[in-house]
Simulated scan of single mutants.
Amino acid sequence: MAKHSTTSTPIPDTVWLGRGRHAGPEPELDARRNLIALKAAGVLDDYVELDPVEAARSSALYPRDESADPGPSARLVFEARWRVDEDVTVRAQLTTFAPGHRRKDAQGIGWVLAAEAERTWQPHWPSPATMFWPDSDLVPWDHDTAPGLRVRAANHLPKDDDELRALLRECAQDGWYIHVLVHEAMTPEAAGQQPVTRFLPPSLRHRVVEHRADPEQVNTADFAAKKELKVRMPRGGAVVLPGSPQPRGYEAERFSVRNVFLDGSEPTELINRIQDYAALPLPLPADAEPALARLRQGWHLLTPDEELAHAKAMVERYAAELEAMTKSRDQYRAAAESAQAALPAGTSVDGGPKPSALAPIKALGRFRNK
C-alpha cells in the first residue's frame, strides 16, 4: 500500500482538502458540465479551465515559481470561485491526473482539490467537491480515497485479518480524510445500509470515509483497531479513528460511541463526535502542500478589481526595483569617478601609485563585489 506522511503544520482553518479517483469514462467532461450548470444557476461567480502548461506559465505581469506547476502527469486544471454566507469568497482548484500518478496499479483519473475561504471554514457551507463533481451516484468521482474505498458509501471491512490490519494502518496514515469505524450489531435493513455520513453537514460530508464491520467481525475488528491504533470498537457502536500521529486533543473514549442504531435515523451522538474530531488541529498531509501552494501561488481566476490591484502592485514592484537599480548605478559611477580623479594626484615620482591613492580604488573594488 502507498505510504503517506504528515507535516507538523496543522491544516489551515480556512482550507478544505480532498482527493480521489474518478472511475468513469469522461471525468473532465463531468466536471465541465457541472461547472457550466452551476455558473448558469448563479451558484458560481465564475470558473476557468486551464491546460497544465498554461497554468504554470510565468510572465512579467504574472510571475510564477515552480510551486504553480502541477507536474507532468497533470491533465487539466479547473478553478472556480463562489461566495458563501453572502460575502465570503471561496477559491478552489481541481487538478486531474493521469492514471497511476499516486499508485502504479491505480485505474481511472486521479484528482486533487484544494479550496480556501476568506475566513474560517464552516461545516454548513457547500462541499467544494460538489462544485466540480455532480453529487450523483451515477458519477463515480469518489473512488480510491484509500485503496478500494469510497466517500459516499458504507465500506465493508475486508474478511482477511491481515488485509483488515493493513487497511487500518493505511487509514491512520491518510491525513486527507477522517475515517470512522461502525459495527453492525445485526445486518441492517435497506435504510440502515446507507452511510451514516449522509447526516453530516455538507462541507464535512465529503471529508469522511465510513467503514462497516459485519456482525461477525466484532472481535477481529476490535482486536485490529486495538493493535494498530490503540482504540477499541464498541459492539454495536462506532469510533472515530485517530490519524498517525494522533492529533492533539484526541482521546479514544471521547471519540467512541457505544450505540449506533442503523435504522435510517440520524445517529446524533456519532455525528457530533465526528464534528468534534474535525475541529481538532489535524496535521497537513505532506502531499497536500503542493496542492495548497498551487492554489495560493498559481491562481488565475481574478475579478476585475483583483486584476487592477494586481497590475498596480506589479507596477509599484517594478518601479521600486528600477529605483534600486538606478541608485546602485549612480553609486557605482560616483565611486568610479572618485577613483579616476585620485589617480593623477596619487602618482609618485617613479610613476607608481602612492599608498594613500589606493584607498578609493579598494573602496571601488569592495563596492563592485557587493
Rank of each mutant, 00 (worst) to 15 (best):
M186S: 14
K230L: 10
P195Q: 09
G243S: 12
D160S: 12
A252T: 09
A146V: 10
W176V: 02
L164Q: 04
Q173Y: 06
R205M: 10
R198E: 13
A213C: 05
R150Q: 13
V239W: 04
E228G: 04
H211A: 02
R169L: 11
T187V: 12
H156G: 06
E253C: 00
E210I: 08
V209D: 01
T145M: 11
G236F: 03
D263K: 05
K226N: 13
L204W: 12
E163L: 13
A153N: 11
S256T: 14
L204Y: 07
E184N: 11
R150E: 08
D162T: 12
N259S: 13
R152D: 09
E216V: 09
E216R: 13
V182D: 02
F199W: 15
R232S: 13
A172E: 04
W176H: 06
K159S: 14
E170G: 10
Q217T: 04
P201Y: 01
Y177Q: 11
S244D: 11
R207L: 14
R150Y: 06
G175L: 03
T145I: 13
D160A: 13
P147E: 09
V208K: 07
V180F: 03
L164C: 02
N219M: 11
F199I: 08
A224K: 04
D162F: 10
D214E: 14
L229N: 01
H211I: 05
E170I: 09
F199V: 08
P242I: 07
V182H: 04
F223Y: 10
A153F: 14
T197E: 06
Q217V: 03
A238K: 01
P234R: 01
S244C: 05
V182K: 03
E216N: 10
L168R: 10
L200S: 05
A225L: 05
P234E: 02
A238V: 00
L157R: 09
L262D: 00
V218M: 09
C171W: 06
V260Y: 04
G192F: 08
R212M: 12
C171T: 12
L181D: 00
P242R: 10
R205A: 08
V260H: 04
E163V: 08
A185I: 04
H206D: 15
M186K: 15
R169V: 06
E228N: 03
Q217G: 06
T187L: 13
V209L: 01
G237H: 00
L164A: 01
D162W: 10
S256K: 09
L181H: 00
R212H: 14
P158V: 11
D222K: 07
H206C: 07
G237P: 01
S256Y: 07
V208A: 05
Q193R: 15
M233F: 11
G243V: 00
R169M: 09
L164P: 02
A172G: 14
E184S: 11
E189S: 09
A166L: 12
F261T: 15
E170K: 11
G148M: 07
A154H: 13
L167R: 11
L149Q: 14
M186R: 15
G237V: 01
P247F: 09
A190G: 00
Y177A: 06
R232P: 00
A221C: 06
H206N: 14
N259F: 09
L157Y: 10
A185N: 03
P188I: 02
L181R: 00
W176G: 00
L262F: 00
A172D: 07
A191D: 15
K230M: 08
E210V: 12
E163I: 03
L181V: 01
